Amino acid sequence: MDHVVSGAAFGAALTASGVFQPAVILGQLQFQNFQMIQTFLTATGTSAFLVTLARQLNLLSAKPRSFSPIGLFAPYDGNLLGGALLGAGMLLSGACPGTVFAQIGLGVRSGFYTLEGATIAGIVWTGLLHPLIQRRLASVDNKNAPQPPTTLASALGLSHAAAVATFSATCAALVFAAAKLAPAPGPEAKFSPPLGGLFIVAAQLVSILLRGSLMGTSSSFEEVGDWFWGVTVRGKGVRPTRYANVLYCAGMVGGAWLLGRTSPALAQVTPVEVAPWAAGLGGFFMLLGSRMAGGCTSGHGISGLSLMSTSSALTIGAAFATAGVLGVVMG
């Protein structure tokens, strides 16, 4: 039940913030609407303080996210390539692995195609690509390869507290600059973007208090993949028992639906053209990239950066850089 309630809080927060909308996501990636980045940076910068406090109070034992190697060129090659796929998928679908569940709860048509593509990607990753990468890594001798610093604090030569303060101040400065220099948010923003970011931080707090863990959604598709292969392929061994993240994401659908029913104004969706093929292909790319990188815009973006994880910075940087370049080219 804790997973469902925590997910419902996140789904409701995404709905209230307005960043679930394809128009907001596509507008940001095409540099036309800066609501998403203001919300994201507020949520991430504030969550960094929340996570630090929760760890000090022993409410949370989460460690910085590790790198996701795939055996090509560096310990973080999976973060860079996976992040690039994530960004391309976001641009195609107008969604990310978290917002798609709010879209489903609110009946956004493209979200269903995105979910379908992401589910297929979860099955492909679990049964085919991930085992292939594991065999590749087992054949590569990288024991003596230099390992990059796992946290931004160590990379910058700062204490953790100084790194959190610097990171949060940078996020606040960028939010302020966007608010002053960028176009005003569109009708999708029922609340100011920074307030929307605080709604998401509140959902992070619920997750910490109820589950003792941070927000993240893309691993739910891996759980679905585990079940698919466990049920359909004989001789694969014991069927998987993981389903916590599926429950969390089901709660997100319910939370978005419930808030949309009680506050219809928050559920009003700005029409934007996302072709079914683009949504499905985008869902496939973004989920495959998320699992290759070990997390998505919530797991790496909000939660991973709150832990000052270098892998999260590389993944999210690659995602937004790729989406931004493709958005300009395709726009």
Rank of each mutant, 00 (worst) to 15 (best):
G98R: 10
G98I: 11
G98T: 10
T99I: 12
T99Q: 09
T99K: 09
V100W: 02
V100I: 14
V100S: 07
V100R: 00
V100Q: 02
V100Y: 00
F101W: 13
F101E: 04
F101N: 02
F101A: 02
F101M: 11
Q103P: 02
Q103F: 07
Q103M: 14
Q103S: 14
I104R: 05
I104E: 03
I104V: 15
I104L: 15
I104Y: 06
G105E: 08
G105H: 10
L106R: 08
L106T: 13
G107C: 12
G107Q: 11
V108T: 15
V108M: 09
V108Q: 14
V108L: 13
V108F: 12
R109I: 12
R109D: 10
R109P: 06
S110G: 14
G111L: 07
G111K: 05
F112D: 00
F112W: 15
F112K: 04
F112H: 09
Y113A: 15
Y113V: 02
T114A: 14
T114W: 12
T114G: 15
T114H: 11
L115G: 10
L115C: 07
L115F: 15
L115P: 06
E116D: 05
E116N: 09
E116R: 08
G117L: 01
G117K: 06
G117W: 01
A118M: 05
A118D: 00
A118N: 00
T119S: 11
T119E: 01
T119R: 02
T119A: 14
I120L: 15
I120Y: 13
I120F: 15
A121K: 03
A121P: 09
A121R: 02
A121C: 07
G122N: 03
G122T: 06
G122A: 05
G122S: 06
G122F: 10
G122E: 11
I123N: 06
I123W: 04
I123Y: 06
I123S: 03
I123D: 09
I123P: 08
V124H: 07
V124K: 04
V124W: 08
V124M: 12
V124G: 06
W125K: 03
T126Q: 12
T126E: 13
T126M: 08
T126F: 08
T126C: 06
G127Q: 08
G127D: 03
G127H: 08
L128W: 13
L128F: 14
L128R: 04
L128M: 13
L128T: 11
L129C: 03
L129E: 05
L129K: 03
L129M: 10
H130I: 00
H130R: 12
H130P: 00
H130A: 14
H130F: 08
H130E: 14
H130C: 01
P131E: 05
P131Y: 04
P131M: 01
L132M: 13
L132T: 13
L132D: 00
L132Q: 08
L132P: 00
L132Y: 12
I133Y: 06
I133W: 03
I133R: 04
Q134N: 12
Q134R: 12
